[in-house]
Design a protein around this nucleic acid. Structure first.
Length: 633
RNA sequence: GGGCCCGUGGCCUAGCAUGGAUCAAGGCGUCGGCCUUCGGAGCCGAAGAACAGGGGUUCAAAUCCCCUCGGGCCCGCCA
């Protein structure tokens, strides 16, 4: 918001000084010094010049610093050359406060850079097979996808969120086998959600039975065959089951604070014959080849860039059916507008935030242009799918130039169970982390984890709020649980495996979501009391004095730079880390700079503005991460 | 066998894109402090002294390059 201006002022004065000097023009950068006491920004320009001229950097830094003219700068307090050759700039905190604080007294004033200029982008995430409940691993996908959506939307992209529903695969047939051939009742026990029932009981049991009873596998194949006809009785039955599961899954996602724009059903993509059109073009352009002989005789295959011969991927089997990856190609082509839209759209359900959730349909509904033909499309899927995603992208690139930049696979490492949790749950006795498996029943259901977190938060909330109703405490605890889990899944690098430990992840202290919420609540309390005591913020006589005030102010001023970085790199982690840092700065300020009891009116008023500004900025950061907010806890 | 990713104090992580400053930063855990002060889900301090190992590039490497080791994932006419 203004750190950006400080930075560009510093850039300008260095460039101008360089022009006035006898030194050659070079590229340089400005970064924050390792230690606060060096200043607020440092230029490495002297090192860059020293490299070319083979002269001591310190001398060069001194020469340039001497030529720097600050007369037209507002936010630079002073500048110095320091060993071994840095040019350090210090912020004029009073000027920064006067510029920044009035603008962020309400959340409307907290602006984010316009990166998107309204460009149409789709983000696909969640995409859980509709035969089971979401587990903790799925939640990483959901949290990342939702945060990316929020980051892009606020950076002025026109973002639509897609959720791909594979309603015609073998996993769905497995559930049908359970109902039709193992006589599972169609209603779950009264205290069990339908998605849990299908996933925890039927899916796992059916897969166990396949091993003992090969006949059952034959039944599954039969069901799959019958599912190909959308008008068949079994298709209708499948649809009723998958819809029931899907709605339960959506409830979990809504509980997690997530929304979507459109459900894309695989069965619709298959029956739309999109594949035929794309396949025809792939053949005409020679992108797919027919294997005349060899191991893959009779198949249509593509070569995979960067892989050895003999590693070709089959798109169409010898029997004429399409493979998994082939099914994704027309869908991806649809997303970026390489094919016409064959779908109608119906309003599937109203979401808790009031927005409609649309779904593809082949018969009824309207035509809509919102969901296909995006400038960029981002698909959030774990890294195990990287090779397939690369193949899809490569095939599309051959159909149309420029697809490389428009089709983006956002991969992330999986969530695994810690040895302790694996033992506690009775999944394993080994001292190593355990990968989850829906088929084997090795996972923790998302709802169960949230419930456990909520229970823990509730104990604390009730203890701290003896005068509040149980309903109130429950509501707050639910928010704390969601914030804790979501933040835990967002805060680390996408390339790193999340080792989920039931006990450790139930933490409410330290680098956690509750820490952030707690900081927010503290700010709310101060503002509430200030209101009661009729203490108004200063707007004319701003006075920044202490180190913790300065640090908080500086952190606030960086918000838009951080959001920009996070949005550009599709990196929720970047914002998550900032949010912790900002909260820490506030808590330090809170300990050392009393607001309401401060006797100096100007200082008190300034601090109050800082608290308000903090509430606005942190509130925005919380929104962008997709965490729930609470005003008391 | 080929490809991708990870390896930072006892444990978990940030920093790596764009190499630089005397102490490489947080959290957890351990030990010790801080409520007559806006809420202690907080703050302060201490101990531990660590960028997997080796080589290279550079005035300067946790960061770039190469090799080795350890761990994970992917490599099906399954999805």
């Amino acid at each position: 918001m203004t750190f950006r201006e400080f930075k560009s002022e510093a850039e300008n004065v260095v460039e101008e000084a360089l022009k006035r000097s006898s030194y050659p023009t070079v590229e340089f950068n400005l970064s924050e010094p390792a230690e606060e006491h060096y200043g607020d920004l440092a230029s490495n320009i002297a090192f860059q010049i020293a490299k070319d001229l083979r002269r001591p950097p310190m001398k060069i830094a001194e020469d340039i610093a001497r030529l720097i003219d600050l007369s037209r700068s507002n936010l630079i307090q002073d500048v110095s050359a320091d060993p071994p050759g840095y040019i350090n700039f210090r912020l004029n905190y009073k000027a920064l406060a006067e510029r920044l604080l009035p603008s962020i007294q309400s959340s409307d004033g907290v602006k984010v850079a316009d990166l998107g200029k309204g460009a149409k982008v789709t983000v696909e995430h969640t995409s859980v097979n509709p035969n089971k409940a979401l587990h903790i691993g799925h939640l990483r996908n959901v949290a990342i996808g939702d945060a990316v959506y929020r980051l892009l939307k606020h950076s002025n992209y026109n973002v639509k969120v897609l959720n791909y529903i594979d309603d015609s695969g073998a996993q769905v047939a497995d559930i049908l086998v359970g109902f039709l051939h193992l006589n599972y009742p169609q209603e779950p026990p009264s205290d069990v959600k339908f998605d849990h029932y299908c996933g925890d009981t039927i899916y796992v049991k059916v897969n166990e039975m396949y091993e003992q009873n090969p006949n059952l596998l034959e039944k599954q194949r039969q069901i799959l065959k019958e599912l190909e006809d959308p008008a068949s009785k079994i298709s209708e039955f499948a649809k009723s089951i998958t819809s029931k599961i899907l709605i339960e899954q959506l409830k979990t996602c809504w509980r997690f604070g997530v929304r979507y724009d459109c459900l894309n059903f695989e069965s619709h993509i298959v029956h739309s014959r999109l594949w035929d059109r794309v396949f025809k073009e792939l053949k005409e352009k020679g992108i797919v080849k027919y294997a005349e002989d060899g191991r893959l005789k009779g198949c249509w295959i593509v070569e995979v860039e960067g892989e050895e011969e003999g590693e070709e991927k089959v798109l169409v089997r010898a029997d004429g059916t399409t493979t998994y990856v082939a099914k994704d190609i027309p869908y991806a082509a649809w997303k970026i507008g390489l094919v016409e839209d064959p779908f109608n759209y119906i309003e599937y359900v109203k979401q808790p935030d009031g927005s409609p959730l649309w779904a593809t349909d082949l018969n009824q509904g309207f035509k809509k242009t919102d969901f296909y033909g995006a400038e960029k499309t981002i698909v959030v899927i774990d890294v195990r799918q990287s090779r397939l995603q690369r193949i899809i992208k490569a095939v599309l690139s051959q159909l149309s130039k420029g697809v490389e930049d428009r089709y983006i696979h956002l991969g992330y490492a999986v969530v695994s169970l810690s040895p302790q949790t694996a033992k506690e749950m009775g999944f394993s006795e080994e001292e190593r982390l355990l990968h989850m498996s829906g088929r084997k029943g090795i996972y923790l259901n998302a709802d169960d984890v949230l419930d456990a977190l909520k229970k823990k938060a509730l104990e604390e909330t009730v203890k701290r709020n003896p005068n509040e109703s149980l309903e109130w405490c429950e509501r707050v605890s639910e928010s704390i649980a969601v914030a804790a889990l979501k933040f835990d899944l967002l805060k680390q690098d996408l390339d790193k495996i999340v080792i989920f430990d039931l006990n450790k992840s139930l933490r409410l202290e330290g680098d956690t979501g509750p820490y952030i919420l707690y900081s927010y609540v503290r700010a709310c309390r101060i503002l509430e009391k200030a209101d009661e005591e009729d203490i108004a913020p200063t707007t004319t006589n701003i006075n920044i004095t202490t180190p913790t005030e300065k640090k908080l102010l500086k952190d606030l001023s960086k918000f838009d730079l951080i959001v920009e970085e996070a949005a550009r790199n599709l990196s929720p982690k970047t914002l998550a880390r900032y949010t912790i840092d900002l909260s820490t700065s506030f808590n330090n300020f809170y300990e050392s700079a009393p607001v309401l009891s401060c006797s100096d009116a100007a200082i008190r008023g300034t601090r109050l503005m800082l608290v308000r500004g903090f509430k606005s900025v942190l509130g925005k950061a919380i929104d962008l991460l997709g965490l729930p907010k609470v005003e008391r806890m």
